[in-house]
């Protein structure tokens, strides 16, 4: 399992890796879901397998507290030009990772609100992809 204090987040563009200096959290939404359905007469106890979400991309949302101006500017450019990137989240100790490959940046990477509390000092880096790869490594006990 990932722990945010052991992890790096960032993205790869044109073969070059860029890492966020201060990352608060990452949230994933995987779109594909399996369901069981059956007739309304309710006699089928096995059910029929049904699937949804095949047309919807997976989403990763990085809450970035701070990054260099160069990376921020590059993100804005990539968003405007709709360029493809690989967004990664990786465990520094083990090398375990989740990578959203051939992703596009969904939201304009801008600070969404300005206020006094901690949560306002960040912007959302949200990407969508149909090609998510991962490397799973056994946790040490």
């Amino acid at each position: 399992m990932f722990q945010i204090w052991n992890c790096d987040g960032g993205f790869t563009y044109n073969g070059v890796n860029y890492k966020f200096k201060d990352l608060n959290s990452v949230a994933y939404t995987y779109s594909q879901k399996n369901h069981l359905i059956r007739g309304a007469n309710a006699t089928n106890k096995m059910g029929i397998l049904s699937q949804e979400g095949g047309k919807t991309p997976d989403v990763a949302e990085y809450e970035v507290q701070d990054c260099s101006k160069a990376i921020y500017t590059l993100l804005l450019q990539l968003f405007e030009e709709r360029q493809r990137i690989d967004a990664f989240f990786i465990d520094r100790r083990t090398g375990e990772y989740v990578i959203f490959k051939d992703a596009i940046i969904r939201d304009k990477p801008r600070q969404a609100n300005v206020g006094e509390d901690d949560t306002s000092h960040s912007f959302m880096f949200a990407v969508e992809s149909f090609n998510v790869t991962e490397k799973v490594i056994e946790d040490e006990q």
Binding site: D8, T12, G15, V16, N17, D86, F88, I90, D91, R92, R93, T94, G95, E96, Y97, I99, K101, T133, K135
Partner: peptide
């Protein structure tokens, strides 16, 4: 060669994993 010369990676698990992903591509 391209990966190492572009990213100048450190000798860490995370860099090894990112190199692995580049080669897997």
């Amino acid at each position: 060669l391209q990966y190492i010369s572009l990213n100048q990676p450190n000798y860490t698990e995370s860099e090894a994993s990112l190199l692995e992903d580049a080669l897997q591509g």
